[in-house]
Structure formats: structure tokens, C-alpha cells
């Protein structure tokens, strides 16, 4: 056994390179063509072959004319099944949409669209990304499409390309396994992992040129939110807190007063990835407390704002900070 394992591991890189050459990355909607569709009998199919041989030997021995016919009928049925298994994948079209960005460590769900142009349904189409434990399986009705979210574990911030897919099916009878490899051009953005227990938001922010943003004292009351570590004591709304059994913090709405600058350079002394993690955690905190925030990276600056788009811009910048996965 160790011998074969060693042999396998020796050949694996060559095999992978061969597959990569034979199945290059394709963009847009990709149709499964017959040149790249493979088919072999499964163990079950080989069992069916054994039944055929048993019948044939029996027919020979007992000079059973109809036994011959029956044995050959099994062969003919196997052929009909082979064609169906092959046609089940032939001509299927796949495309990969843009996945929702996730934080490193979470699963990226690549949205795959499977388009079936023919009238017959396609059964049990199994899709597995390379080196992933989870696979997805679906039926596609005739002249219809199916959406499939294929989970791929993200390990590192940056860009995560969809690994090469193995698309396989043993339907309709399980006697044959038909498969192909497909490299789609799906790419996911992976934000840095938020630091699990970050220090409180910095009370004030500073731009790298030293211009201070002063928090003014006269703010409009904007609402309440839950206490978080690092909140100032004088911001606690004692009366409301007493009523709700939660410590609530008065929120103020003031364009300047609450503005927060999150500065990469201020975190000097920490490794780059830790800094990115912390900034991510802070951005999420600021967004959830509705406190406008700006982000300053060595090469980029995002002026303070709030909202979905701003959040996405800031986190993408962190994700694509040099040194991540591409």
C-alpha cells in the first residue's frame, strides 16, 4: 500500500497539469462537449456485466436459445442506459455568477447556473469543486435552468478563484458514471477575517498628515444602541438602561462629532494581517453602530460615510491589500 500511495503522489502533479491543460479556464456560459465527456461503468455496472456473463454461460450450457436472447437483451439495455447516462450531461451549460463576498474562513457560495436546453430533464447532476469535501447535486427539468450555490471554503483574504469542477452523473440507472472537468472563471472576494475580540473603536481618528478631527460636544440625539466595550461612561443612557435590563448607549448624530478615521498606519507594530483583521472588525462595528467612518490605507483613502456601498468599498480594499491571495 505505501508503494502505491507513493506512486500516486508522484503522478498526481503530472495528472493535475494534464487536466489543467486539457480543461483550461473558460469564461461565460460553457457547454459540455462530447470531446471532454468521459464514461466508465461503475461497480454496479460491472455487476450487471457479471449477470450478463452468467446468463450467457447458462444459455451455452443448457442450450437455451431464449437464454441467449435474454443475455443479449441485457447487453442491449446496458447500451441504452449508457447512451442515456452520456446524454444526461451532454450539452449541459454552466456559468458562474459573482458570489457574495465573505469573510475569510467562511464558505463562499459560488452561484452556478445550470441551463438545460433540451426537452428531457437531466437527473442527479453532481458538482464538486476540487479538494472540497462538500458537493452539490441537482435535477434540472427540461428546458429550464437551475441555480446552485456551490460551497467552497475560503482560507485566505483576497480573491478566491472557483476551483476546477468535476461534473458527474450516474443517472438514470447507476450502471455508468459519466463525468467531465470544467474550469469556470468565477472569482470570489474574500474579506479579511474580523478580529474576534477587537479593542474598542478609536475615540477619534487622525489622518496621516496629522489633521485632527475633533469630536464636538453638542450633538443631536439620534437613538440608542447596545453597550460595547470602550464606550464612554457619560454616553450611557441610564434611565433607558434600567428599563430594558441592557446597558444602552446614547447615539449622537453629528457629521463631524462621530466621524471616525480608521488608519492603517496608526496600528504600527502589528503584523499586516492582524492590522487588516482589526480594521475589518472596526469597520463592522462602526457600521453596526451607524457611526460614519473613513478608512485610510497607505495607498488609498475612503472619506467617512456609512451604508452598504461604503462598507463594501472599504472591505474590498482591505481584502485586496497587497499580500493576499489572488
Amino acid at each position: 500500500m505505501p508503494m502505491t500511495a507513493a506512486l500516486l503522489s508522484f503522478w498526481r502533479p503530472y495528472w493535475q497539469r494534464f487536466l489543467a491543460r486539457r480543461h483550461p479556464v473558460e469564461s461565460g456560459k460553457v457547454r459540455i462537449r462530447h470531446q471532454r465527456l468521459y464514461i466508465l461503468p461503475t461497480l454496479y455496472g460491472l455487476g450487471f456485466g457479471m449477470i450478463f456473463i452468467t446468463m450467457l454461460v447458462g444459455a451455452l450450457n443448457y442450450q437455451l436459445s431464449l437464454g441467449f436472447f435474454f443475455a443479449f437483451l441485457l447487453l442491449g439495455v446496458a447500451h441504452a442506459i449508457l447512451l442515456r447516462t452520456y446524454a444526461n450531461l451532454l450539452g449541459l451549460q454552466l456559468s458562474c455568477g459573482t458570489p457574495i463576498p465573505v469573510f475569510a474562513g467562511e464558505n463562499v457560495y459560488f452561484p452556478l447556473t445550470l441551463l438545460n436546453e433540451k426537452r428531457q430533464p437531466r437527473f442527479g447532476v453532481n458538482i464538486q469543486a476540487r479538494q472540497q469535501a462538500e458537493s452539490a447535486s441537482t435535477h434540472i427539468p427540461g428546458q429550464d435552468h437551475q441555480l446552485l450555490a456551490l460551497p467552497v471554503k475560503s482560507r485566505q483574504r483576497g480573491l478566491l478563484a472557483l476551483p476546477r469542477l468535476t461534473i458527474s452523473s450516474t443517472m438514470p440507472l447507476g450502471f455508468f458514471r459519466c463525468w467531465t472537468y470544467l474550469a469556470l472563471d468565477g472569482v470570489a472576494l474574500v474579506y479579511p477575517q474580523p478580529e474576534p475580540d477587537p479593542p474598542p473603536l478609536p475615540d477619534h481618528g487622525a489622518l496621516s498628515d496629522g489633521k485632527k478631527m475633533q469630536a464636538s460636544g453638542n450633538e443631536d440625539f439620534a437613538g440608542l444602541r447596545e453597550f460595547q466595550r470602550g464606550d464612554a461612561l457619560h454616553d450611557i443612557a441610564w434611565k433607558q438602561s434600567a428599563r430594558t435590563e441592557q446597558i444602552l448607549i446614547r447615539q449622537h448624530q453629528s457629521p463631524i462629532g462621530a466621524t471616525l478615521w480608521l488608519n492603517f498606519d496608526e496600528l504600527a507594530g502589528l503584523p499586516v494581517e492582524v492590522r487588516l483583521s482589526r480594521l475589518t472588525a472596526w469597520i463592522l462595528q462602526a457600521e453596526s453602530t451607524q457611526r460614519p467612518y473613513g478608512l485610510a490605507l497607505p495607498a488609498q483613502q475612503f472619506p467617512p460615510a456609512l451604508g452598504h456601498d461604503h462598507l463594501h468599498r472599504c472591505l474590498s480594499a482591505l481584502a485586496q491589500y497587497p499580500g493576499g491571495a489572488t
Binding site: I100, P111, T113, H145, L147
Partner: peptide, 14 residues
């Protein structure tokens, strides 16, 4: 809920 995802989904349908 996110209108952007709805839009994205729309563009994935032929």
C-alpha cells in the same frame, strides 16, 4: 435583504 443581490440574480437568468 439586498436589492443588489436581486439584480445579480436577474442577470444570471437568460
Amino acid at each position: 435583504s439586498d436589492p443588489h443581490i436581486a439584480e445579480q440574480l436577474m442577470y444570471s437568468v437568460a
